[in-house]
Nucleic acid binder design. Structure first.
Lengths: 210, 210
DNA sequence: CAGTAAGCGGACCGATGGGTCAGGTTAACT
DNA sequence: AGTTAACCTGACCCATCGGTCCGCTTACTG
């Protein structure tokens, strides 16, 4: 249900396949540089193809974005799934690492994944990744690696895992010339918050007793 | 240097002043609903005025945004400054509260403040608020409320205060129908991370030992 | 109650960007 | 080499949006 990239029936021509790759690479670079509203014309120019060629391979701009996101979300999601089936409680810290790896994977395209006007397919990919992260956090909590009152639900509302998904990439994007592992530092801070020994400052329901 | 809103020489007409307020309110609501690219036409319609009237009061759309941001940044910034001049080491927790207050103030307009293509005036306001938060965190650290290796610099690069500034609002915006104080919970988690006892998991320079 | 300048409205303009299409081009196969 | 269908191109179309302009309206002043 999620893995139907509606490939346009396997082309036999080599140039078409090459153009498709050129386009994906150019689009990713262009989006990383110019943000969500990089123009299709610029992407085509960067790929060295005509503008019409873009729409031959990707019906709409949203489809192009979805294709990029699909590439990036696939890897960390698989890693996550594999860790879950491992069933090793001692792997909890490793699971956290997987999340971190996902963060690095997404670095330059996180805003594509998290755009508020994302296409249905991107939303589906996002929610799938959310669910994986939730499961990882759940496992880690069962293993005692995070405090028990950390909220993890399939529903996104009130889900602390959102912090792990969104924060480091987005915050890093506000820093000019960020050190390449700044996101790691931020992630560490949030992990610290999730792991604090319980009792001192309950997270719910009211204000944190500052 | 920062407080010159270049008011257009005090008008004597009551309708103009009223329209200005209507516009600010309408724009804020429209931005909150539709995001950064709410159209000027829609804002005008919502305010019940002509499109030209918008540009009579605000030379450009960016000016309108800056006016909104100015309103929201003013209050928390003043609170912060006041806390700083208090010179009371016991006020550290209160200083945290000030940050929290800032978060609440900005809720719906944080993306205006943090837009990556913000106008010079908005950038100035943002950096001013950053500095205030940095000073607050610095005070709190001096008072022993946060771990010593939390980085706070006037320069934004590598500044952990960015987490406090950006995260809760942004993350909350990814949650559909967020409970009104979800940001508070997220802030509490980050505070927890910043306050963890030192030694166990150093924040710098390398990866957190997960 | 005029007189007047400030204010207002909304048609209009130029720029930009997503998406289309007709016609030339080319890779694969025989 | 010849055939053909898939492919590519870029001029074009249309919608949207920020910003302008000029004639009309209206709130203040004397």
């Amino acid at each position: 249900m999620l893995g139907s990239p509606h490939e346009p029936a396997r082309t036999s021509r080599a140039d078409a396949a090459r153009d498709r790759e050129l386009l994906l690479a150019a689009a990713e670079a262009e989006f990383a540089e110019r943000g969500l509203d990089a123009s299709v014309a610029d992407i085509a120019r960067r790929a060295g193809v005509g503008e019409g060629t873009v729409f031959r391979h990707f019906a709409t701009k949203d489809d192009l974005i979805a294709a990029i996101v699909r590439t990036h979300v696939g890897a960390p999601d698989e890693v996550g799934q594999r860790l879950l089936t491992a069933e090793d409680p001692a792997a909890a810290p490793l699971e956290f690492r997987a999340v971190a790896g996902g963060q690095r994977e997404q670095r330059d395209v996180s805003f594509l994944l998290n755009a508020d006007d994302a296409s249905p397919e991107v939303v589906a990919l996002r929610e799938r990744l959310y669910r994986t992260v939730c499961l990882l956090v759940d496992h880690a909590r069962a293993a005692g690696a995070v405090r028990a009152d950390v909220a993890v639900q399939a529903d996104v509302t009130g889900n602390d895992a959102v912090l792990l998904m969104c924060t480091p990439n987005h915050v890093v994007s506000f820093v000019k010339d960020p050190p390449p592992d700044l996101w790691r530092r931020y992630l560490a801070i949030i992990f610290g918050g999730l792991r604090r020994p319980e009792g001192a400052h309950p997270l719910t329901p009211a204000a944190p007793a500052l």
